[in-house]
Structure formats: C-alpha cells, structure tokens
C-alpha cells in the first residue's frame, strides 16, 4: 500500500504539471481525492491492514492527501497567473495611439486674461461694475472734462449715434456713472467694450476692450496709485517686472501718468519690440481730476481718488505673443484651441 501511495503521489505530481486548464485540475482532484478517487480507494483498503501497520499507512495516506491538495492549490494558482498573463498579453494596446477626446471647450484668450485681471483686483478689494456701451456724450466726454470741440476728442475718433449719443470710446464714463450711484469708499474695476473709428488692421480694431479702475476715498494719494498698480503689475507679469510712471495728459486726471514696464525682450536696452525705448507702455492712469469728482457728486475737498484705464487686447497680445489683433474677432478654432 505504501508503494501504491507513493505511486499516486508521483502520478499526481506528473499529471498536475501536465494540466494546463483549471478544468483539468478539477478532473484530477476528483480522480485523486474524490469519493471514488484513487486515494479514497486505497483508504478503503485500510481495513485489511494490521493494527500495527494502520497508523503508519494512515499517516502516509494523510501526507499524500495533503501533498496532493497543496500541489493542486499551487498548480491552480500557477495556472491562474498564467491565464491572467496570457489575457493581459492578448489585450495589449498600443499606448502610443492618441487618446479619445471629449472636446473640452476653451475660454477665449481675452477672457482668460480678463479673468486673471479680475481676480487680481478682487484680491485687492475691488468690485466689478458694468455700464452701457451706447453712451451719452455727457458721460463719455463732457463730465470727464472733455467739452465739445476739445482737441482731446481728436485722439478718440468717435462713432456717433445722435449728437448726444455715441459708442463709448473708453470705459471712463463708468467713473461718473458709478460715483453718481455709489458713495465713497469706491473701489471698482469696469471692464467692457469700447469703440473708436479706427479702420481694422493688424494693430487697430474699431472695437476693443478696456478695463477701468476707480478708487475714491478719503486720503487717497498718488503713492497709493503707484503702489496699487505696481502690485497689480507684479501679479500680472511676474514679480521681477520693472515699472515706471511717466507724466502724461488725460483731461480727467491730474496729475496723469502712463505706466510702462521694462521691455522683457531687451531689459531696457532698447530693441525692436519696444521700438528702441527699452520700455513698453501698459496703461494710463492718474489722480481723478477734482472737476470729475464734482461731476460725480463727490466733494473733492473731502475725497480724492485715482483712475486707471488699460487695453485688454494689448495685454493679451503681449501675453500670448499674438501679433495681429484681428485674430481675436475672427474666432477661428485653429486660433481659439491654442489657449
């Protein structure tokens, strides 16, 4: 019987190795260990053994069963692993093939930059105001210290709707409108469309966007103007940007300035990008003119303020290195999808 048991172990070992499918393993289990299996058959003969032999053979039989069971399990795991591997191999993909795109929509590049600007100003405690694009001459010019026939009107070629109604040439009318309806302290930006009768070319568009900023409060100084704009500019262009404020003229601010940033291409040495100046003009600003405060119903003896105007397209063109303003309004996906 010992020999038989030994035989079963050997056969089992051999046949298990030969099995290639889990089903075969199951067949083997039944054949070897099942009720009618070979091992069971041997155990059934145990009755014929002497009492002395019985424990020894019993132990051997149990060892054989344990061995076969262990072998079955091991082989089972092996086969499972092999099978899984084979499946994975057969399901192999070319991972260098392109992904399937769900088609994510993209913000317009002007919106991308405008959102950034809004976020910076909101972080500095500003709110956002909006006003009409078709505007009264009064708000666009008169109340901003630009009477009829003032030469400053020349620099802003205006589309008129009637003698008194026009397409706003700047977002500055929002200064008056906001002051009329809100008491200081005021801290707003007013982004929006503006219109000038410039024929469309690579650098001019009859419609473009400006962002106005207005701060009115007690004790606002020109150094606040500089500090606020410097903080804004460093947020927008990076903390290593250099800015300078240079005198300029706007009828509705006094003193007036233009703010330049140092040319990031030549770092001030002068190159083609900055037309040899070393600096690039970014925005216009100044202390709100006392008459303008008055026109907005604010007492210039008690309050002072500053105002800022900047062109969105120019900022976006620099940001993305776009050299033709027309691309913004053509809305070609080959352009829009780049941002």
């Amino acid at each position: 019987m010992k020999q038989q048991l030994e035989e079963i172990r050997k056969t089992a070992e051999r046949e298990l190795l030969a099995a290639t499918r889990p089903a075969e393993l199951e067949e083997l289990r039944v054949k070897l260990l099942g009720k009618k299996g070979e091992l069971t058959a041997i155990l059934k003969q145990m009755g014929g053994l002497s009492a002395a032999e019985r424990p020894e053979v019993g132990r051997l039989a149990n060892e054989a069963r344990a061995f076969i069971e262990q072998q079955l399990a091991e082989r089972g795991e092996q086969l499972h692993a092999l099978q899984t591997n084979a499946r994975l191999l057969s399901e192999r993909l070319d991972v260098t093939m392109p992904g399937t795109h769900r088609g994510l929509g993209k913000k317009h590049p002007l919106t991308i930059v405008l959102d950034e600007i809004k976020a910076i100003f909101i972080g500095m405690g500003f709110e956002i105001a909006q006003g009409p694009e078709v505007e009264l001459d009064y708000y666009n010019f008169e109340a901003l210290n630009i009477p009829k026939n003032h030469p400053a009107r020349d620099t802003q070629d205006t589309f008129y709707v009637t003698d008194n109604i026009l397409l706003r040439t700047q977002t500055s009318p929002m200064q008056i409108r906001y002051m009329e309806s809100h008491r200081p302290p005021i801290r707003i930006i007013a982004p929006g469309r503006v219109y000038r009768s410039d024929p469309l070319d690579a650098t001019h568009s009859p419609l473009f966007h400006q962002i106005e900023a207005l701060v009115v409060d007690r004790g606002i100084t020109m150094s606040d103007l500089k500090g606020t704009l410097e903080a804004f500019t460093k947020e927008l262009y990076g903390s290593d940007v250099k800015v300078r404020f240079r005198p300029h003229h706007f009828p509705f601010t006094e003193p007036s300035c233009e703010m330049d940033i140092m040319c990031f291409s030549c770092h001030g040495a002068g190159c083609r990008l900055c037309k040899g100046e070393g600096w690039i003009e970014v925005l216009g600003c100044g202390m709100v003119h006392p008459k303008v405060l008055q026109n907005g119903g604010v007492d210039p003896e008690l309050y002072s303020g500053f105002a800022v105007g900047m062109g969105l397209e120019r900022i976006a063109m620099r940001r993305f290195n776009i050299n033709d303003i027309r691309l913004f309004y053509e809305n070609d996906l080959r352009f829009l999808n780049q941002f």
């Binding site: 606002i220 020109m222 606040d224 500089k226 500090g227 300078r244 300035c257």
Partner: peptide, 10 residues
C-alpha cells in the same frame, strides 16, 4: 514720478 513712494491704500 519715480521719486514718489509706492504705498498700498490704507
């Protein structure tokens, strides 16, 4: 203008 200090609104 460059000699005017820069401050944040107080």
């Amino acid at each position: 203008y460059d000699n005017i200090p820069t401050t944040l609104i107080t």
